[in-house]
Simulated scan of single mutants.
Amino acid sequence: MGYFVVSVFGTAAVAFALLSWYASNLRYFRYLAVGLASCGTGFLLQTAQIPTNISANSLLATACYFAGALSVAEAVKRRSSETMGWAFHATLFVVALLSTAYFLFVDRNLIARTYILNFGFGFVLLAAAWKTRKHIRGSVADQILFWTIALVGLHFLPRTVLTVGSFSAAPGEHVNTTFWITLQYTLAFVLNAGVLALFGVAGADIFASITRERDSDVLTGLLNRRGLETAVRSLTGKGTQNAVILADLDNFKAINDHFGHAAGDIVLQETARRLAAVARKQDLLARIGGEEFVCVISGSVEDALALAERFRTSLAATPVNVGSASLTVTGSFGIAASDAYDHFWDAVKEADTQLYVAKRAGKNAVSSRERLAS
């Protein structure tokens, strides 16, 4: 059984190491690889009795187990952009190791060491689950990861009591009892199920990462045309009120011609940052080509007019620094009610018409058919 668990952890560690190379943006894979490798090393040391001295073997294996548990917990937290900090991990590791050493060399007590090991594991994993509890209502992958970590952590609590109960056998003979062997098989099952769940979450994260790259504009990080089309399908529907804001930077060609395309890229990135800072969380923001940006909102044309005015003010308020130059950047905005059209891009076409009305009116302006009619 020991070597089987070692092979599972070893294979999983190698797999996550390769995945961390393939999907370098998913940095938590590295922590999983280190954690699983460390746990596998602990099992290997105890199974192969390396070193042969029981006390040294137990202490070294405990160090590997705790290092592995802490690394896996850190991976879970980093996936959710959380962390406990290295000071917390180092303190917990040192306390666990010193406590184990005390009950190995000073007051030899197997029951105490069992409590330290199992309760320590449970605490580390439950702390990680608690830190990421906001994902209980997240995606399927979020929920799988949360409940996997929480249940594996919780299982160590009753396991501790049951394990201690097996020590009624003669000293050193408890490892041969049916009860103890059953507990080891149970542990192997739980850990293997946990590893499989981690692979499932990793697969979902890689797919989501590929989708984001496909649907995002490389320069600005906003949605691209394809990403916008996909997102609009979930926003629009029968009976909903939506509006489109189309923005175009004024005199952008002159910036490219005079300062170069690198300067133009800086202006586009800063424009995207300012638009994103003003847009609401539920709004869809995209760059659909050149210096054109689209924002789709759930709301009326009046809501879109108010938001577009905030966009316009944000762009014009502060110059964009490009090297030693300070560039005043403005934009013109056209608005259309997207629910008034059968196809989304027909609404964008109407917004484009209104955008050029704003351009002809002197630029740095907002226009809509409703505003012109009033």
Results as ranks from 00 to 15, higher is better:
19 L>A: 06
220 T>C: 10
240 T>R: 15
334 G>Q: 02
303 D>G: 04
78 R>S: 02
146 F>V: 04
17 A>E: 02
341 Y>F: 15
143 Q>C: 09
297 I>C: 06
217 D>G: 07
342 D>R: 12
26 L>R: 01
314 S>H: 06
95 V>D: 12
249 L>Q: 04
87 A>S: 14
358 A>I: 11
143 Q>Y: 13
220 T>F: 14
371 R>D: 08
108 R>Y: 15
74 E>M: 00
160 T>Y: 10
4 F>T: 09
28 Y>I: 00
326 S>N: 08
142 D>R: 06
51 P>F: 10
329 V>C: 03
231 A>L: 07
241 Q>T: 15
188 A>M: 15
65 Y>R: 02
101 A>W: 10
99 S>V: 10
148 T>G: 08
92 L>K: 03
257 D>M: 11
85 G>E: 12
8 V>Y: 01
149 I>W: 09
251 N>D: 15
47 T>F: 15
373 A>V: 13
99 S>W: 12
56 A>G: 12
274 R>A: 02
279 A>R: 10
63 A>L: 14
311 F>A: 04
150 A>K: 06
26 L>H: 00
296 V>G: 00
309 E>A: 07
291 E>F: 05
210 I>K: 01
152 V>K: 01
274 R>I: 05
284 L>C: 07
270 E>G: 02
104 L>M: 09
91 T>L: 14
191 L>E: 14
255 I>L: 10
295 C>V: 15
21 W>A: 12
27 R>L: 01
93 F>K: 04
11 T>V: 09
325 A>I: 03
322 V>G: 10
222 L>Q: 04
157 L>T: 02
224 N>D: 07
9 F>C: 04
278 V>R: 05
260 G>F: 13
64 C>Q: 01
189 F>E: 13
315 L>R: 07
116 I>S: 04
32 L>C: 05
101 A>P: 07
235 L>I: 09
321 N>M: 12
321 N>V: 15
365 A>M: 12
219 L>C: 08
1 M>G: 14
33 A>N: 01
286 A>S: 09
78 R>Q: 08
325 A>F: 05
217 D>Y: 12
41 T>K: 04
180 W>C: 02
29 F>P: 00
233 R>I: 06
114 T>A: 08
92 L>D: 06
139 S>G: 03
53 N>P: 03
339 D>W: 09
148 T>H: 07
73 A>S: 08
143 Q>D: 07
201 V>A: 09
26 L>T: 00
96 A>G: 06
284 L>V: 06
176 N>F: 14
150 A>V: 10
30 R>N: 01
249 L>D: 03
134 K>T: 14
